[in-house]
């Protein structure tokens, strides 16, 4: 795991808020989630309901690193 993904993990974990799954009422657990964008994929550590899989993307991640990653994937996409 490189430094970038580590940072993603921290942001994804949303330690500061106590979210639970509204459906299953279970606390969330951090998992490696395969996300996709443009023509690539990326594993991101995200908080997720262990029962139904409902997954949370917190605001700092969505508006911070995810934007950077999106941009990066757009820049390296070479049309193949």
């Amino acid at each position: 795991m490189d430094a970038r993904e580590k940072a993603l993990e921290q942001e994804g974990a949303v330690k500061e808020r106590r979210w639970i799954c509204g459906r299953c009422k279970r606390p969330l657990e951090v998992e490696s989630v395969p996300t996709r964008y443009a023509h690539g994929g990326l594993l991101i550590q995200l908080a997720r309901c262990p029962q139904c899989g409902l997954t949370l993307v917190p605001k700092p991640l969505a508006e911070g690193r995810m934007v950077d990653m999106q941009k990066r994937m757009e820049e390296t996409w070479n049309g193949v």
Partner: peptide, 26 residues
């Protein structure tokens, strides 16, 4: 109270089913 958005597709979020179903979609 708040709203945000992103373009990445995240299985388990946005109405996408987690794991298996998503793998197939991909």
């Amino acid at each position: 109270h708040d709203a945000w958005c992103h373009r990445m597709r995240v299985p388990g979020a946005g109405g996408e089913v987690a794991s298996t179903a998503f793998a197939k979609q991909t």
